[in-house]
Simulated assay, not measured.
Amino acid sequence: MPLKALADPRVRGEFLDRHDRLGLKSKRSADHAFSVLALILAGACDRGKIPSNPCERPGRRYRGSRADIVWTEARSSPS
């Protein structure tokens, strides 16, 4: 994608649509890929290469907790 295209307000929707499509296979991987893209674009924005970061604050697709695995009665008692 050319850098000039990043100035178009519709590009954020395109990136979010891609994030959703990636999330169909793996929500966690989609979040990771989008975070990396957001960091790259943040660097470009900081250096004045692009006017704004269309990927900032995207939200998360993956919600998980491992509390039920870690904090069980069997695991908390001394061996």
Rank of each mutant, 00 (worst) to 15 (best):
I50W: 02
C55L: 01
S79N: 06
A42S: 14
R10V: 14
P9Q: 11
A38W: 03
T72Y: 00
L24G: 13
D68M: 02
A30S: 11
G13M: 06
V70S: 05
R47N: 12
P58R: 04
F34A: 00
S29E: 10
R18T: 10
L39A: 08
R57G: 03
M1H: 01
L6W: 05
K49T: 12
G48L: 00
H19F: 10
P2I: 05
R18W: 11
R47Y: 10
G13F: 03
S26L: 05
I50F: 05
F34E: 01
G43K: 15
E14T: 12
P9L: 09
C45R: 13
H32P: 01
P51L: 12
P2Y: 06
A44Y: 02
M1A: 00
H32Y: 04
I69D: 10
K4G: 12
S35Y: 01
P54K: 03
S79Y: 01
R21A: 05
S79K: 01
K27C: 03
G43M: 13
S52H: 15
L16S: 06
A67W: 02
S52P: 04
K27A: 07
P51H: 13
R75M: 12
V11E: 14
P54A: 12
I40R: 09
R60T: 14
D8E: 11
A7M: 14
F15A: 01
C55T: 03
E14I: 13
Y62M: 15
S77G: 06
R61K: 15
I69Q: 08
V11M: 14
Y62D: 15
R21E: 07
A38L: 03
A38H: 07
D8I: 04
D17A: 10
G64E: 14
C45Q: 14
A42Q: 14
A74F: 06
G64A: 11
H32K: 02
R28K: 06
K27Y: 05
A42I: 08
A44Q: 02
C45Y: 09
L22C: 03
E14M: 13
Y62N: 15
R47P: 03
S52R: 15
S26W: 04
L22W: 10
M1E: 05
L6T: 04
R61D: 11
G23Y: 08
L24D: 14
P58S: 09
L37M: 10
V36C: 06
G64D: 11
L41K: 05
A5Y: 11
A5G: 07
R28M: 06
I40P: 00
L6M: 09
L3F: 13
R75Y: 09
A30D: 01
L24H: 13
D31Y: 06
A44I: 02
R60H: 13
A38F: 05
V36G: 02
K4H: 12
L16A: 07
A5V: 13
L22G: 00
S52D: 15
L41E: 07
R61I: 15
R66I: 10
R10E: 15
P78T: 04
I50M: 09
S65K: 06
P9N: 10
D8W: 03
D8M: 01
R75A: 08
G43F: 12
S52F: 15
A42K: 14
G43L: 13
R10S: 15
R75G: 07
